[in-house]
């Protein structure tokens, strides 16, 4: 890692004709690609600043003549969709789920990696076996369990079932296996028990990895749709994704406000993305290539 080019070329190759053509083609492709990739974000904001009439007018154009910033105030007042309430729900769900998941899964991953126990292997097999069953396929059975707990349209129903990620336990375990044992032994010599070693020695030394997992969890939790759609049956328990979806499929939605609301909804994640991209890239690599 950390070298300049993923696929190196011989010295001087870029000065040959073939090398030059390659560079030019690459630039053209990347610039076109970048414009296409940014276009949807642009449309989101552009349409969020338009009037309702403008969006259905024949002379709609890529570059607006006037910007209606008041849309962003109106969207919070609109009684069609409880945007503030649903944003709040999303924040609560995403924060609780991220913190809870990292907490539970790191503990379990550490236990499986480091604590000798006769049946540890069987437990590990159970975790790996559950990896083969994607959560989305079990949404009907999970719904059955959650509804019999009385957790429909309830914060607990939104948060708790998502806390137990076998994938994260597996990733934490793999990571802790490579943690230097000497550091832990030094902690034991200082009189710490296993719990103390984990919190005082292991966790402070694995900040980057915890951050990577947390960022992935947070984005996943904020953007999830199917589960909140099933559980959030009352308007008061909608997350922002459910609220947007409901508005999108309603009769005659105010499209400009819908775009404004959607732009507001991705703002927290875009911030997380920009600030924590380093950890995000690491998290994606870990979950994708190890999992």
């Amino acid at each position: 890692m950390g070298r300049d080019y993923g696929v190196p070329v011989p010295v001087g190759y870029r000065q040959t004709t073939a090398g030059r053509i390659g560079v030019v083609l690459r630039w053209i492709a990347l610039v076109i690609g970048a414009v296409l990739f940014l276009l949807p974000f642009y449309l989101l904001v552009r349409n969020g600043l338009a009037t309702q009439g403008e969006l259905s007018a024949r002379d709609w154009s890529l570059f607006p003549r006037s910007l209606h910033w008041s849309n962003f105030a109106d969207v919070f007042d609109s009684d069609e969709v409880p945007l503030l309430r649903s944003l709040w729900n999303s924040v609560v769900v995403a924060v609780l789920q991220t913190v809870g998941q990292v907490f539970l899964c790191s503990l379990a991953g550490y236990g499986l990696a480091r604590i000798p126990y006769r049946h540890a292997n069987k437990v590990l097999y159970a975790v790996i076996a559950s990896l083969m069953v994607p959560t989305a396929v079990t949404f009907v059975p999970s719904f059955v369990v959650v509804s019999s707990l009385g957790w429909i349209s309830d914060l607990r129903g939104l948060v708790v079932p998502g806390l137990f990620s076998a994938l994260n336990v597996f990733l934490f375990r793999q990571y802790f296996l490579d943690f230097p044992v000497e550091l832990e032994e030094a902690g034991r010599l200082d009189g710490l028990n296993r719990w103390g070693v984990f919190w005082r020695v292991v966790v402070p030394n694995c900040g980057g990895f915890f951050a990577a997992i947390a960022v992935i969890d947070f984005i996943g939790s904020w953007n999830q749709f199917l589960w909140p759609l099933i559980i959030g049956q009352d308007e008061s328990s909608w997350t922002v994704q459910v609220a947007l979806s409901t508005l999108l499929s309603s009769q005659n939605p105010k499209i400009n406000l819908l775009f404004a609301a959607a732009a507001v909804s991705i703002l927290p994640i875009v911030l997380v993305f920009v600030v924590l991209q380093r950890y995000l890239v690491r998290g994606v690599t870990e979950t994708g290539l190890r999992g």
Binding site: F37, F259, Q277, L280
Partner: peptide, 23 residues
């Protein structure tokens, strides 16, 4: 360029659906 191509990962499917369907 890496950030630009990676950025949509931060977007939800619901929001993308809105842009694709309505615009």
């Amino acid at each position: 360029f890496r950030s630009v191509f990676f950025l949509p990962f931060a977007c939800s499917y619901v929001v993308a659906s809105l842009v694709w369907k309505m615009s």
